[in-house]
Nucleic acid binder design. Structure first.
Lengths: 250, 250
DNA sequence: TCCTCCGTTAATGTATACATAACGTATTCA
DNA sequence: TGAATACGTTATGTATACATTAACGGAGGA
Protein backbone atom coordinates (compact mmCIF):
# COMPACT_ATOMS: atom_id res chain seq x y z
CA UNK A 1 0.00 0.00 0.00
CA UNK A 2 2.82 2.33 0.89
CA UNK A 3 4.69 1.71 -2.32
CA UNK A 4 6.00 4.70 -4.17
CA UNK A 5 3.08 4.99 -6.49
CA UNK A 6 3.90 8.63 -6.94
CA UNK A 7 2.65 8.51 -10.47
CA UNK A 8 -0.81 7.53 -9.40
CA UNK A 9 -1.32 8.74 -5.86
CA UNK A 10 -0.14 12.31 -6.43
CA UNK A 11 -2.41 14.46 -8.51
CA UNK A 12 -1.34 15.46 -11.98
CA UNK A 13 -1.48 19.09 -10.92
CA UNK A 14 1.11 18.60 -8.18
CA UNK A 15 3.23 16.49 -10.47
CA UNK A 16 3.22 19.20 -13.11
CA UNK A 17 3.94 21.86 -10.52
CA UNK A 18 6.97 20.01 -9.18
CA UNK A 19 8.27 19.21 -12.65
CA UNK A 20 7.91 22.78 -13.84
CA UNK A 21 9.50 24.18 -10.70
CA UNK A 22 12.47 21.88 -11.24
CA UNK A 23 12.76 23.04 -14.82
CA UNK A 24 12.64 26.68 -13.75
CA UNK A 25 15.17 26.35 -10.93
CA UNK A 26 17.52 24.21 -12.96
CA UNK A 27 17.55 26.81 -15.68
CA UNK A 28 15.98 24.66 -18.35
CA UNK A 29 13.50 27.48 -18.78
CA UNK A 30 15.19 30.84 -19.23
CA UNK A 31 13.96 33.96 -17.40
CA UNK A 32 11.83 36.24 -19.54
CA UNK A 33 11.02 33.41 -21.86
CA UNK A 34 7.38 32.57 -22.44
CA UNK A 35 6.42 29.16 -21.12
CA UNK A 36 4.66 27.18 -23.78
CA UNK A 37 1.79 25.17 -22.39
CA UNK A 38 2.10 22.54 -25.08
CA UNK A 39 5.78 22.14 -24.39
CA UNK A 40 5.02 21.86 -20.67
CA UNK A 41 2.43 19.21 -21.46
CA UNK A 42 5.09 17.18 -23.25
CA UNK A 43 7.77 17.53 -20.60
CA UNK A 44 5.53 16.95 -17.58
CA UNK A 45 3.33 14.25 -19.01
CA UNK A 46 0.24 15.88 -17.58
CA UNK A 47 -2.59 17.31 -19.63
CA UNK A 48 -3.20 20.97 -20.34
CA UNK A 49 -5.69 21.49 -17.52
CA UNK A 50 -3.39 20.43 -14.64
CA UNK A 51 -0.49 22.20 -16.36
CA UNK A 52 -2.46 25.42 -16.37
CA UNK A 53 -3.36 24.94 -12.70
CA UNK A 54 0.31 24.41 -11.92
CA UNK A 55 1.24 27.56 -13.84
CA UNK A 56 -1.25 29.61 -11.83
CA UNK A 57 0.14 28.23 -8.57
CA UNK A 58 3.73 28.93 -9.63
CA UNK A 59 2.72 32.47 -10.49
CA UNK A 60 1.25 32.94 -7.02
CA UNK A 61 4.42 31.38 -5.64
CA UNK A 62 6.41 34.11 -7.30
CA UNK A 63 8.44 32.10 -9.78
CA UNK A 64 6.34 33.06 -12.79
CA UNK A 65 4.98 36.30 -14.09
CA UNK A 66 1.78 36.65 -16.06
CA UNK A 67 2.15 38.08 -19.55
CA UNK A 68 -0.53 40.73 -20.23
CA UNK A 69 -1.41 39.23 -23.56
CA UNK A 70 -1.72 35.78 -22.01
CA UNK A 71 0.45 33.00 -20.71
CA UNK A 72 3.35 33.10 -18.29
CA UNK A 73 7.06 33.77 -18.31
CA UNK A 74 9.84 32.87 -15.89
CA UNK A 75 10.54 35.75 -13.58
CA UNK A 76 14.02 37.24 -13.38
CA UNK A 77 15.44 38.45 -10.10
CA UNK A 78 18.07 41.07 -9.42
CA UNK A 79 20.54 40.67 -6.58
CA UNK A 80 18.61 43.41 -4.82
CA UNK A 81 15.35 41.50 -5.24
CA UNK A 82 16.91 38.52 -3.56
CA UNK A 83 18.44 40.39 -0.64
CA UNK A 84 15.13 42.19 -0.15
CA UNK A 85 13.32 38.86 -0.14
CA UNK A 86 15.68 37.57 2.51
CA UNK A 87 15.25 40.66 4.65
CA UNK A 88 11.52 40.36 4.17
CA UNK A 89 11.60 36.83 5.48
CA UNK A 90 13.77 37.96 8.38
CA UNK A 91 11.28 40.65 9.27
CA UNK A 92 8.43 38.15 9.28
CA UNK A 93 10.42 35.66 11.34
CA UNK A 94 11.24 38.50 13.69
CA UNK A 95 7.54 39.15 14.12
CA UNK A 96 6.99 35.45 14.75
CA UNK A 97 9.71 35.41 17.41
CA UNK A 98 8.20 38.50 19.02
CA UNK A 99 4.75 36.92 19.06
CA UNK A 100 6.18 33.79 20.64
CA UNK A 101 8.01 35.82 23.28
CA UNK A 102 5.20 38.20 24.14
CA UNK A 103 2.43 35.64 24.15
CA UNK A 104 4.44 33.07 26.03
CA UNK A 105 5.63 29.61 25.15
CA UNK A 106 5.67 26.69 27.58
CA UNK A 107 8.90 24.86 28.39
CA UNK A 108 7.50 21.80 26.66
CA UNK A 109 6.86 23.67 23.43
CA UNK A 110 10.37 25.08 23.50
CA UNK A 111 11.87 21.60 23.74
CA UNK A 112 12.06 20.82 19.99
CA UNK A 113 13.83 24.11 19.43
CA UNK A 114 16.41 23.30 22.09
CA UNK A 115 16.92 19.88 20.55
CA UNK A 116 17.76 21.52 17.23
CA UNK A 117 20.12 23.84 19.04
CA UNK A 118 21.92 20.97 20.73
CA UNK A 119 22.17 18.99 17.51
CA UNK A 120 23.72 21.94 15.68
CA UNK A 121 26.10 22.49 18.60
CA UNK A 122 27.22 18.90 18.15
CA UNK A 123 27.80 19.47 14.43
CA UNK A 124 29.87 22.58 14.98
CA UNK A 125 32.15 20.83 17.45
CA UNK A 126 34.19 19.25 14.67
CA UNK A 127 36.79 21.38 12.93
CA UNK A 128 36.88 21.80 10.04
CA UNK A 129 33.25 21.24 9.27
CA UNK A 130 32.71 18.45 6.77
CA UNK A 131 30.44 18.72 3.76
CA UNK A 132 28.14 16.17 5.37
CA UNK A 133 27.95 18.35 8.43
CA UNK A 134 26.97 21.27 6.22
CA UNK A 135 24.23 19.18 4.75
CA UNK A 136 23.00 18.18 8.20
CA UNK A 137 23.13 21.81 9.23
CA UNK A 138 20.82 22.76 6.39
CA UNK A 139 18.26 20.20 7.53
CA UNK A 140 18.46 21.16 11.19
CA UNK A 141 18.41 24.85 10.41
CA UNK A 142 15.30 24.46 8.29
CA UNK A 143 13.66 22.57 11.12
CA UNK A 144 14.65 25.24 13.63
CA UNK A 145 13.09 27.98 11.54
CA UNK A 146 9.94 25.97 10.90
CA UNK A 147 9.44 25.21 14.60
CA UNK A 148 10.11 28.82 15.57
CA UNK A 149 7.56 30.00 13.04
CA UNK A 150 4.98 27.63 14.49
CA UNK A 151 5.59 29.01 17.97
CA UNK A 152 4.03 32.30 16.90
CA UNK A 153 0.71 30.44 16.97
CA UNK A 154 -0.49 32.80 14.29
CA UNK A 155 -1.89 31.05 11.21
CA UNK A 156 -1.86 34.20 9.04
CA UNK A 157 1.77 34.86 9.92
CA UNK A 158 2.80 31.24 9.43
CA UNK A 159 1.16 31.31 6.05
CA UNK A 160 3.01 34.44 5.00
CA UNK A 161 6.35 33.13 6.20
CA UNK A 162 5.80 29.93 4.25
CA UNK A 163 5.08 32.02 1.17
CA UNK A 164 8.13 34.18 1.72
CA UNK A 165 10.33 31.09 2.14
CA UNK A 166 8.96 29.41 -0.96
CA UNK A 167 11.45 31.22 -3.13
CA UNK A 168 14.47 28.96 -2.74
CA UNK A 169 16.97 31.79 -2.50
CA UNK A 170 14.93 33.42 0.28
CA UNK A 171 14.64 30.28 2.40
CA UNK A 172 16.56 30.13 5.68
CA UNK A 173 19.25 27.81 4.37
CA UNK A 174 19.35 29.10 0.83
CA UNK A 175 22.99 30.10 0.77
CA UNK A 176 24.55 27.91 3.41
CA UNK A 177 25.79 25.24 1.01
CA UNK A 178 27.06 27.83 -1.43
CA UNK A 179 29.76 28.94 0.97
CA UNK A 180 30.58 25.55 2.42
CA UNK A 181 34.04 25.70 0.88
CA UNK A 182 34.81 29.21 2.04
CA UNK A 183 37.09 29.79 5.03
CA UNK A 184 34.57 32.24 6.54
CA UNK A 185 31.96 29.52 6.52
CA UNK A 186 32.70 28.13 9.94
CA UNK A 187 32.61 31.53 11.61
CA UNK A 188 29.33 32.36 9.96
CA UNK A 189 27.74 29.15 11.18
CA UNK A 190 28.97 29.85 14.70
CA UNK A 191 27.42 33.31 14.60
CA UNK A 192 24.18 31.93 13.19
CA UNK A 193 24.05 29.39 15.98
CA UNK A 194 24.58 32.17 18.53
CA UNK A 195 21.50 33.86 17.03
CA UNK A 196 19.57 30.64 17.50
CA UNK A 197 20.68 30.50 21.11
CA UNK A 198 19.74 34.12 21.78
CA UNK A 199 16.28 33.89 20.25
CA UNK A 200 15.45 30.91 22.46
CA UNK A 201 16.69 32.79 25.50
CA UNK A 202 14.69 35.86 24.53
CA UNK A 203 11.51 33.85 24.07
CA UNK A 204 12.02 32.12 27.42
CA UNK A 205 12.41 35.47 29.14
CA UNK A 206 9.54 36.99 27.16
CA UNK A 207 11.79 39.64 25.67
CA UNK A 208 9.85 40.38 22.51
CA UNK A 209 11.98 43.19 21.12
CA UNK A 210 15.18 41.19 21.65
CA UNK A 211 13.75 38.11 19.98
CA UNK A 212 12.62 40.17 17.02
CA UNK A 213 15.90 42.03 16.65
CA UNK A 214 18.04 38.91 16.68
CA UNK A 215 15.94 37.19 14.01
CA UNK A 216 16.31 40.22 11.79
CA UNK A 217 20.04 40.20 12.28
CA UNK A 218 19.99 36.48 11.59
CA UNK A 219 18.53 37.14 8.16
CA UNK A 220 21.16 39.75 7.47
CA UNK A 221 23.64 36.91 7.82
CA UNK A 222 21.91 35.19 4.91
CA UNK A 223 22.24 38.38 2.90
CA UNK A 224 25.94 38.35 3.67
CA UNK A 225 26.13 34.74 2.54
CA UNK A 226 24.47 35.75 -0.71
CA UNK A 227 26.99 38.50 -1.34
CA UNK A 228 29.89 36.19 -0.46
CA UNK A 229 28.61 33.51 -2.77
CA UNK A 230 28.08 35.90 -5.67
CA UNK A 231 31.54 37.42 -5.29
CA UNK A 232 33.32 34.07 -4.85
CA UNK A 233 31.92 32.48 -7.93
CA UNK A 234 33.81 29.27 -7.42
CA UNK A 235 30.92 27.29 -5.99
CA UNK A 236 28.00 28.94 -7.70
CA UNK A 237 26.82 25.55 -8.88
CA UNK A 238 25.62 24.92 -5.34
CA UNK A 239 23.37 27.96 -5.53
CA UNK A 240 19.69 27.33 -5.98
CA UNK A 241 18.01 29.15 -8.78
CA UNK A 242 21.19 30.71 -10.03
CA UNK A 243 19.63 30.80 -13.44
CA UNK A 244 16.99 33.24 -12.21
CA UNK A 245 19.45 35.92 -11.20
CA UNK A 246 19.75 38.57 -13.85
CA UNK A 247 23.26 39.90 -14.08
CA UNK A 248 23.79 43.57 -14.69
CA UNK A 249 20.74 44.48 -16.71
CA UNK A 250 19.93 48.18 -16.37
CA UNK B 1 -15.00 50.79 -28.21
CA UNK B 2 -14.93 51.91 -24.62
CA UNK B 3 -18.40 50.66 -23.88
CA UNK B 4 -18.86 48.58 -20.80
CA UNK B 5 -18.45 45.31 -22.55
CA UNK B 6 -17.35 43.78 -19.29
CA UNK B 7 -18.93 40.53 -20.28
CA UNK B 8 -16.68 40.15 -23.26
CA UNK B 9 -13.50 42.10 -22.59
CA UNK B 10 -12.79 40.67 -19.14
CA UNK B 11 -11.80 37.04 -19.05
CA UNK B 12 -14.21 34.51 -17.65
CA UNK B 13 -11.65 33.62 -15.01
CA UNK B 14 -11.54 37.15 -13.63
CA UNK B 15 -15.31 37.42 -13.83
CA UNK B 16 -15.72 34.22 -11.86
CA UNK B 17 -13.09 35.32 -9.36
CA UNK B 18 -14.83 38.63 -8.71
CA UNK B 19 -18.26 37.05 -8.50
CA UNK B 20 -17.10 34.35 -6.09
CA UNK B 21 -15.24 36.86 -3.94
CA UNK B 22 -18.40 38.94 -3.70
CA UNK B 23 -20.38 35.88 -2.70
CA UNK B 24 -17.83 35.00 -0.03
CA UNK B 25 -17.54 38.48 1.44
CA UNK B 26 -21.27 39.09 1.36
CA UNK B 27 -21.82 35.89 3.28
CA UNK B 28 -23.75 34.10 0.57
CA UNK B 29 -21.26 31.28 1.05
CA UNK B 30 -20.88 30.26 4.67
CA UNK B 31 -17.45 29.63 6.21
CA UNK B 32 -16.56 25.97 6.49
CA UNK B 33 -19.02 25.12 3.77
CA UNK B 34 -17.78 23.27 0.73
CA UNK B 35 -18.01 25.31 -2.44
CA UNK B 36 -19.76 23.37 -5.14
CA UNK B 37 -18.19 23.91 -8.52
CA UNK B 38 -21.43 23.24 -10.34
CA UNK B 39 -23.25 25.75 -8.19
CA UNK B 40 -20.47 28.27 -8.83
CA UNK B 41 -20.82 27.61 -12.54
CA UNK B 42 -24.51 28.48 -12.33
CA UNK B 43 -24.11 31.63 -10.25
CA UNK B 44 -21.10 33.03 -12.10
CA UNK B 45 -22.12 32.10 -15.62
CA UNK B 46 -18.61 30.93 -16.40
CA UNK B 47 -17.66 27.39 -17.26
CA UNK B 48 -16.01 24.90 -14.94
CA UNK B 49 -12.46 25.57 -16.13
CA UNK B 50 -12.38 29.31 -15.35
CA UNK B 51 -14.32 28.64 -12.14
CA UNK B 52 -11.62 26.23 -11.02
CA UNK B 53 -8.91 28.73 -11.92
CA UNK B 54 -10.74 31.36 -9.87
CA UNK B 55 -10.99 28.95 -6.93
CA UNK B 56 -7.25 28.31 -7.01
CA UNK B 57 -6.55 32.04 -7.07
CA UNK B 58 -8.93 32.69 -4.19
CA UNK B 59 -7.21 29.98 -2.21
CA UNK B 60 -3.83 31.61 -2.79
CA UNK B 61 -5.46 34.89 -1.84
CA UNK B 62 -6.38 33.40 1.51
CA UNK B 63 -10.15 33.45 1.30
CA UNK B 64 -10.50 29.75 0.59
CA UNK B 65 -9.03 26.63 2.09
CA UNK B 66 -8.36 23.43 0.19
CA UNK B 67 -10.21 20.38 1.45
CA UNK B 68 -7.89 17.35 1.64
CA UNK B 69 -10.38 15.11 -0.11
CA UNK B 70 -10.78 17.67 -2.86
CA UNK B 71 -12.46 20.97 -3.51
CA UNK B 72 -12.45 24.15 -1.47
CA UNK B 73 -14.26 25.66 1.47
CA UNK B 74 -14.64 29.23 2.72
CA UNK B 75 -12.07 30.00 5.36
CA UNK B 76 -13.18 31.18 8.78
CA UNK B 77 -11.21 33.81 10.68
CA UNK B 78 -10.98 34.42 14.40
CA UNK B 79 -10.71 37.93 15.78
CA UNK B 80 -7.10 37.09 16.57
CA UNK B 81 -6.47 36.02 12.98
CA UNK B 82 -7.69 39.39 11.80
CA UNK B 83 -5.72 41.46 14.26
CA UNK B 84 -2.62 39.42 13.43
CA UNK B 85 -3.21 40.03 9.73
CA UNK B 86 -3.44 43.76 10.38
CA UNK B 87 -0.27 43.76 12.44
CA UNK B 88 1.41 41.72 9.73
CA UNK B 89 0.51 44.33 7.16
CA UNK B 90 1.72 47.05 9.50
CA UNK B 91 5.04 45.29 9.88
CA UNK B 92 5.48 45.03 6.13
CA UNK B 93 4.47 48.66 5.61
CA UNK B 94 6.94 49.55 8.32
CA UNK B 95 9.65 47.79 6.38
CA UNK B 96 8.58 49.65 3.23
CA UNK B 97 8.79 52.97 5.06
CA UNK B 98 12.21 52.07 6.40
CA UNK B 99 13.44 51.11 2.93
CA UNK B 100 12.14 54.41 1.57
CA UNK B 101 13.82 56.37 4.35
CA UNK B 102 17.15 54.57 4.28
CA UNK B 103 17.48 54.36 0.53
CA UNK B 104 16.33 57.89 -0.02
CA UNK B 105 13.41 59.38 -1.88
CA UNK B 106 13.58 62.51 -3.99
CA UNK B 107 11.37 65.49 -3.23
CA UNK B 108 9.55 64.89 -6.48
CA UNK B 109 8.69 61.32 -5.54
CA UNK B 110 7.41 62.47 -2.18
CA UNK B 111 5.02 64.92 -3.80
CA UNK B 112 2.04 62.55 -4.33
CA UNK B 113 2.28 61.53 -0.69
CA UNK B 114 2.16 65.15 0.45
CA UNK B 115 -0.80 65.78 -1.81
CA UNK B 116 -2.69 62.97 -0.08
CA UNK B 117 -1.72 64.45 3.25
CA UNK B 118 -3.02 67.88 2.30
CA UNK B 119 -6.25 66.45 0.93
CA UNK B 120 -6.92 64.53 4.14
CA UNK B 121 -6.09 67.64 6.17
CA UNK B 122 -8.75 69.44 4.22
CA UNK B 123 -11.27 66.69 4.95
CA UNK B 124 -10.59 66.72 8.67
CA UNK B 125 -11.10 70.46 8.89
CA UNK B 126 -14.87 70.12 8.99
CA UNK B 127 -16.48 69.13 12.27
CA UNK B 128 -18.23 66.82 12.60
CA UNK B 129 -16.93 64.70 9.76
CA UNK B 130 -19.64 63.80 7.27
CA UNK B 131 -20.21 60.32 5.93
CA UNK B 132 -19.08 61.53 2.53
CA UNK B 133 -15.87 62.75 4.09
CA UNK B 134 -15.35 59.33 5.62
CA UNK B 135 -15.78 57.79 2.21
CA UNK B 136 -13.28 60.23 0.70
CA UNK B 137 -10.90 59.46 3.53
CA UNK B 138 -11.00 55.77 2.69
CA UNK B 139 -10.04 56.52 -0.91
CA UNK B 140 -7.26 58.95 0.00
CA UNK B 141 -5.94 56.68 2.74
CA UNK B 142 -5.76 53.74 0.35
CA UNK B 143 -3.87 55.92 -2.10
CA UNK B 144 -1.47 57.10 0.61
CA UNK B 145 -0.63 53.55 1.61
CA UNK B 146 -0.24 52.42 -2.00
CA UNK B 147 2.13 55.28 -2.83
CA UNK B 148 4.12 54.73 0.34
CA UNK B 149 4.49 51.06 -0.50
CA UNK B 150 5.77 51.94 -3.96
CA UNK B 151 8.39 54.25 -2.46
CA UNK B 152 10.17 51.22 -1.03
CA UNK B 153 11.23 50.47 -4.62
CA UNK B 154 11.26 46.81 -3.69
CA UNK B 155 9.16 44.62 -5.99
CA UNK B 156 9.23 41.60 -3.63
CA UNK B 157 8.07 43.73 -0.71
CA UNK B 158 5.40 45.49 -2.76
CA UNK B 159 4.14 42.13 -3.85
CA UNK B 160 3.92 40.83 -0.29
CA UNK B 161 2.16 43.95 0.95
CA UNK B 162 -0.37 43.65 -1.82
CA UNK B 163 -0.98 40.05 -0.82
CA UNK B 164 -1.31 41.00 2.84
CA UNK B 165 -3.77 43.76 1.98
CA UNK B 166 -5.86 41.52 -0.23
CA UNK B 167 -7.86 40.30 2.73
CA UNK B 168 -10.40 43.10 3.03
CA UNK B 169 -10.29 43.22 6.82
CA UNK B 170 -6.50 43.58 6.74
CA UNK B 171 -6.45 46.41 4.22
CA UNK B 172 -5.45 49.88 5.41
CA UNK B 173 -8.99 51.25 5.43
CA UNK B 174 -10.75 48.07 6.43
CA UNK B 175 -12.39 49.35 9.56
CA UNK B 176 -12.61 53.06 8.98
CA UNK B 177 -16.18 53.05 7.75
CA UNK B 178 -17.29 50.71 10.49
CA UNK B 179 -16.68 53.31 13.14
CA UNK B 180 -17.83 56.32 11.15
CA UNK B 181 -20.76 56.79 13.50
CA UNK B 182 -18.75 56.49 16.69
CA UNK B 183 -17.79 59.58 18.68
CA UNK B 184 -14.17 58.42 18.87
CA UNK B 185 -14.00 58.32 15.10
CA UNK B 186 -12.83 61.88 14.60
CA UNK B 187 -10.04 61.56 17.13
CA UNK B 188 -8.84 58.34 15.57
CA UNK B 189 -8.68 59.91 12.13
CA UNK B 190 -6.72 62.84 13.53
CA UNK B 191 -4.23 60.46 15.11
CA UNK B 192 -3.97 58.43 11.91
CA UNK B 193 -3.28 61.59 9.97
CA UNK B 194 -0.55 62.52 12.44
CA UNK B 195 1.03 59.15 11.67
CA UNK B 196 0.90 59.99 7.98
CA UNK B 197 2.58 63.30 8.66
CA UNK B 198 5.30 61.72 10.78
CA UNK B 199 6.16 58.99 8.30
CA UNK B 200 6.65 61.56 5.54
CA UNK B 201 8.86 63.62 7.84
CA UNK B 202 10.86 60.55 8.81
CA UNK B 203 11.38 59.54 5.19
CA UNK B 204 12.46 63.07 4.28
CA UNK B 205 15.02 63.06 7.10
CA UNK B 206 16.08 59.50 6.30
CA UNK B 207 15.12 58.29 9.76
CA UNK B 208 14.49 54.63 8.99
CA UNK B 209 13.71 53.39 12.47
CA UNK B 210 11.25 56.22 13.10
CA UNK B 211 9.48 55.67 9.80
CA UNK B 212 9.16 51.97 10.54
CA UNK B 213 7.94 52.46 14.10
CA UNK B 214 5.23 54.93 13.17
CA UNK B 215 3.83 52.67 10.44
CA UNK B 216 3.63 49.83 12.94
CA UNK B 217 1.81 52.04 15.38
CA UNK B 218 -0.42 53.15 12.54
CA UNK B 219 -1.52 49.57 12.00
CA UNK B 220 -2.22 49.18 15.71
CA UNK B 221 -4.77 51.92 15.22
CA UNK B 222 -6.56 49.67 12.75
CA UNK B 223 -6.52 46.88 15.33
CA UNK B 224 -8.13 49.30 17.77
CA UNK B 225 -10.74 50.15 15.15
CA UNK B 226 -11.46 46.46 14.76
CA UNK B 227 -12.00 45.99 18.48
CA UNK B 228 -14.16 49.09 18.67
CA UNK B 229 -16.29 47.95 15.78
CA UNK B 230 -16.74 44.46 17.16
CA UNK B 231 -17.73 45.76 20.60
CA UNK B 232 -20.07 48.45 19.26
CA UNK B 233 -22.08 46.18 17.10
CA UNK B 234 -24.41 48.93 15.94
CA UNK B 235 -22.82 49.44 12.57
CA UNK B 236 -21.46 46.01 11.87
CA UNK B 237 -23.18 46.05 8.49
CA UNK B 238 -20.46 48.40 7.29
CA UNK B 239 -17.82 45.81 8.07
CA UNK B 240 -16.33 43.95 5.18
CA UNK B 241 -16.32 40.21 5.41
CA UNK B 242 -18.20 40.14 8.68
CA UNK B 243 -19.53 36.76 7.67
CA UNK B 244 -16.03 35.30 7.77
CA UNK B 245 -15.43 36.08 11.43
CA UNK B 246 -16.07 33.06 13.56
CA UNK B 247 -17.58 34.06 16.90
CA UNK B 248 -16.52 32.28 20.04
CA UNK B 249 -15.52 28.90 18.75
CA UNK B 250 -13.06 27.19 21.08
C1' DT C 1 14.51 50.43 -48.39
C1' DC C 2 11.21 50.88 -44.97
C1' DC C 3 6.68 50.83 -43.35
C1' DT C 4 2.10 49.10 -43.35
C1' DC C 5 -1.49 45.92 -43.99
C1' DC C 6 -3.31 41.49 -44.48
C1' DG C 7 -3.28 36.65 -44.00
C1' DT C 8 -1.85 32.58 -41.87
C1' DT C 9 -0.37 30.06 -37.96
C1' DA C 10 0.00 28.95 -33.39
C1' DA C 11 -0.91 29.98 -28.96
C1' DT C 12 -4.08 30.71 -25.07
C1' DG C 13 -8.88 30.90 -23.10
C1' DT C 14 -13.03 28.32 -22.77
C1' DA C 15 -16.29 24.59 -22.78
C1' DT C 16 -17.58 19.98 -22.24
C1' DA C 17 -17.18 15.00 -21.98
C1' DC C 18 -15.33 11.21 -19.36
C1' DA C 19 -13.32 8.64 -15.42
C1' DT C 20 -12.48 8.08 -10.77
C1' DA C 21 -13.07 8.71 -6.08
C1' DA C 22 -15.79 10.06 -2.15
C1' DC C 23 -19.93 10.54 0.33
C1' DG C 24 -24.46 9.26 1.64
C1' DT C 25 -28.08 6.00 2.07
C1' DA C 26 -30.19 1.79 2.42
C1' DT C 27 -30.20 -2.90 3.52
C1' DT C 28 -28.69 -6.80 5.90
C1' DC C 29 -26.55 -9.24 9.50
C1' DA C 30 -25.20 -9.71 14.21
C1' DT D 1 -31.52 -1.88 17.47
C1' DG D 2 -27.08 -0.71 15.95
C1' DA D 3 -23.32 -1.16 13.04
C1' DA D 4 -21.13 -2.41 8.90
C1' DT D 5 -21.02 -3.08 4.11
C1' DA D 6 -22.41 -2.42 -0.49
C1' DC D 7 -24.36 0.18 -3.95
C1' DG D 8 -25.71 4.36 -6.16
C1' DT D 9 -25.26 9.11 -6.82
C1' DT D 10 -22.64 13.15 -7.12
C1' DA D 11 -18.61 15.92 -7.23
C1' DT D 12 -14.01 16.56 -8.43
C1' DG D 13 -9.84 15.63 -11.36
C1' DT D 14 -8.44 15.05 -16.00
C1' DA D 15 -8.40 15.10 -20.94
C1' DT D 16 -9.56 16.94 -25.24
C1' DA D 17 -12.04 19.60 -28.67
C1' DC D 18 -13.27 24.21 -30.16
C1' DA D 19 -12.99 29.21 -30.69
C1' DT D 20 -10.80 33.47 -30.36
C1' DT D 21 -7.02 36.31 -30.17
C1' DA D 22 -2.32 37.64 -30.67
C1' DA D 23 2.02 37.24 -32.98
C1' DC D 24 4.78 36.50 -36.90
C1' DG D 25 5.78 36.63 -41.71
C1' DG D 26 5.20 37.98 -46.36
C1' DA D 27 3.77 40.99 -49.85
C1' DG D 28 2.65 45.34 -51.68
C1' DG D 29 2.90 50.23 -51.76
C1' DA D 30 5.13 54.67 -50.59
Amino acid sequence: MAEREVDRSVSQTVKAQLALRDQILSGALRPGERISELQAVETTGASRTPVRMALVRLEEEGLLEAIPSGGFMVKAFSERDISDSIELRGTLEGLAARFAAERGVSARELEPLKECLAAIDELLRQVPISVDAFSSYVTLNARFHAVLTELSRSPPLIRQIDRASALPFASPSGFVMAQSALPEAQQILIIAQEHHRVVIDAIENREGARAEAVMREHARLAVRNLRLALRNRTHLDLLPALALIKTATD
